[in-house]
Design a protein around this nucleic acid. Structure first.
Lengths: 195, 195
DNA sequence: GGTTAAATGGACCAAGCGGTCCAAAAATGG
DNA sequence: CCATTTTTGGACCGCTTGGTCCATTTAACC
């Protein structure tokens, strides 16, 4: 079995580059040439390696999900307490409003609003990611309950979905132009629902 | 001063039709022919009356905002109590998940995520609408405070923004595919932050 | 019924879209 | 250094995009 010429680019890195563009501009507003420019590929290499714009997009969603679930896990692990982790997560979302430059929000939430209704495969990616994020929150809440930070009779699954909802809302409000300091106060109100 | 031939269509009705399409599909994914078909206009009538796709879009945003602020006002007025109004608002958002067919969410929130970062005029429309919605919530909260439903020392403006955030989050979660009954439980958690 | 102002349908536009295809180049294993 | 496998650049595709333009029709006023 012959090997042939090896790939000249790193597919993972290319996906990362594409992810950045999709993240910033969404699916529809991103053109093929935008992608090619960002990835540094020719058209044929692109189609050879990724099939189509939408397939690449789905790959980006999967990669985004994996990476961010991982990052959440690390944050939970290194946080002062489970509840501190939750607060930190929400604050991180709110504080995007503080940064200069464009607000890109969360790729998954963006996709849910822009695209999930139109394509089943994409919708599945979004649902999977949402489930994963909620599961991370649920773990944190159960830990907090054992810690005594949250009442033990509370329904951890419902609280987890509540937190996910709040996260999504914060991201939307950032995009809608609310200032960071106001959103940080909103986070404190949101946290008060856990007690 | 001569009058000339009168318009053959009702511009308001045409905007309503266009709004429906934008609401469902977003700005980028809506093509001119989609709009013309929905509005029942020829291309020249369209450009004559509305200037461009984006100008029409902005008109839709303005109209959407006016209509929904109005509707919120009516709901607040006819509600059993200010707090009941708030709960009803949130539940209305959550219950979109119960309806068959595509989920369109809220045109303003959709636009915030899809488009607000790229165009200043559109961003301004979104900010204005967000401010109006928040103001309605604020009125409701202040009424609830006088009613004794919410502690008087709470910051009504912050709570209002919290509610707006929750609304936006609920709409996103509906689009992400969470079932209605779970979202209704989330609403109850969210409401508990007001007490 | 003529005059005027505006609406209308449809031809037309260049540019961009996502996607295909192929001949040439290149890197590996033998 | 040859054979095999794969990548690569670029030509090419049909189609759609948002938008313009104009000759014609239409309605209202006097």
């Amino acid at each position: 079995m012959q090997t042939g010429r090896p790939l000249e680019f790193d597919p993972q890195l290319a996906i990362d580059a594409a992810m950045g563009v999709f993240w910033l501009r969404g699916f529809e507003a991103t053109s093929l040439s935008d992608l090619l420019a960002a990835m540094g590929l020719s058209k044929s290499s692109f189609y050879n390696a990724f099939g189509s714009k939408q397939q690449l997009f789905e790959a980006c969603l999967v990669r985004f999900r994996r990476r961010h679930v991982e990052r959440m896990g690390e944050m939970l692990h290194s946080a002062a307490s489970p509840l501190a982790f939750v607060r930190e997560m929400l604050l991180t979302n709110a504080r995007e409003a503080r940064e200069p430059g464009p607000r890109r929000g969360c790729l998954i939430m963006n996709t849910a609003t822009e695209f999930a209704g139109r394509d089943a495969a994409v919708a599945a990616c979004v649902e999977d990611a949402a489930r994963d994020f909620a599961a991370m929150f649920r773990t944190a809440i159960e830990m907090a309950q054992e810690h005594g930070e949250i009442p033990r009779n509370a329904d951890a699954a419902v609280l987890a979905r509540y937190l996910l909802t709040t996260m999504a809302g914060l991201r939307t409000m950032v995009k809608a132009g609310l200032p960071a300091d106001e959103l940080e106060k909103v986070v404190e109100v949101a946290m008060s629902a856990l007690r």
